[in-house]
Design a protein around this nucleic acid. Structure first.
Length: 192
DNA sequence: ATCTAGATCGGCT
DNA sequence: GCCGATCTAGATG
């Protein structure tokens, strides 16, 4: 499979978020390959988006100013790793949070890593997604162009793309920057 | 030096 | 639906 080129990521964050739906997240590990199709993402911008970690430029959020096409992985609630892909041109902050995917390949591996069997429960949520895909904090700043962890073109959404407010935030809740493939059985939450 | 809220999850009611 | 787990970045004194 061919990784998405860096130019794919070097665009406005919301544009990248929508374009990521249906794409394949691939991780080639020593234990085998795992692949999932993205069905839910959220866009996080910079200085004008108070819900974004890049609302303040700090040690943790600095990566969001980095090269488009690298990973931003952070620890949520002391427990869960959450994965973003960095967007916009170098020096402009932005990232897309990967919230849910449909298992495509390496399902047995995902089931082992997650400790459960049900397909629709393997990666429906940002913390579950990283666990199912074998992604850890060690992948922070990993380059998604030319490494063992990458995104590749996938089947375009068969259903309509729906935009909703982002989940789990307390500010900027009026922005509809969560994008889902409506009708997927693997969403972290049903729509509307 | 200390405090607190957090882009969550799983179990229980 | 509610709650506890678990921990750290970032803010404040």
């Amino acid at each position: 499979m061919t990784p998405l080129p860096r130019a794919f990521y070097a665009r406005p964050t919301v544009t990248v978020a929508r374009a990521l739906l249906g794409c394949l997240l691939v991780h080639e590990t020593s234990e085998g390959q795992v692949v999932g199709r993205l069905v839910e993402v959220e866009a996080y911008a910079g200085a004008r988006d108070p819900a974004s970690h890049a609302y303040r430029r700090t040690l943790r959020s600095e990566v969001m100013w980095g090269r488009p096409g690298i990973a931003y992985v952070y620890l949520s609630h002391g427990i869960h790793a959450c994965m973003n892909v960095v967007t916009e041109s170098l020096g402009r902050p932005g990232a897309v949070l990967l919230r849910a995917l449909e298992p495509v390949d390496g399902v047995a591996l995902m089931q082992r890593w997650r400790g459960i069997d049900a397909l629709r429960d393997l990666a429906h949520g940002p913390g579950r997604l990283t666990q199912a895909m074998g992604i850890t904090l060690a992948h922070n700043r990993a380059d998604l162009v030319g490494g063992p962890l990458y995104l590749a073109p996938g089947d375009r959404p068969t259903g309509p793309i729906t935009a909703t407010p982002r989940i789990g935030i307390s500010v900027a809740t009026d922005r509809r920057w969560r994008f889902v493939i409506r009708g997927s059985s693997c969403l972290s939450r049903a729509v509307r």
